[in-house]
């Protein structure tokens, strides 16, 4: 699953280069938003979902141990 999520993120970066909408403003979403803008708003939404999946499936659990590490007042760990 971990690799699959990273694969999807790389795929999102690839489909970000939407040459298929380059030369058109149509369809207009809701009669207002040109497709080139609507598509990239969707890319932002997809980024949020995919990073949500990464948080769920690719989370570095080993670093959660560091939550318990105490740090002295001068910033040094102890």
């Amino acid at each position: 699953m971990r690799l699959f999520v990273y694969f999807l993120i790389v795929l999102l970066a690839i489909v970000h280069q939407d040459f298929w909408w380059w030369d058109t403003e149509k369809p207009l979403i809701g009669g207002v938003v040109p497709i080139g803008l609507a598509y990239h708003a969707l890319v932002s939404l997809a980024a949020a979902i995919l990073w949500g999946l990464a948080v769920k499936h690719c989370w570095p659990h080993d670093l959660d141990d560091d939550d318990a590490t105490t740090v002295s007042n001068d910033g040094a760990a102890s």
Binding site: H40, V43, L63
Partner: peptide, 28 residues
């Protein structure tokens, strides 16, 4: 904007958390 959405979160997730961990462990 949409590049920033992808790349900023990548920086937070892949770099930020690791650096936070080093900072906490070694007092940076």
């Amino acid at each position: 904007a949409s590049w920033s959405g992808i790349v900023h979160s990548a920086c937070f997730f892949l770099v930020g958390i690791k650096l936070w961990s080093f900072g906490k462990r070694f007092g940076y």
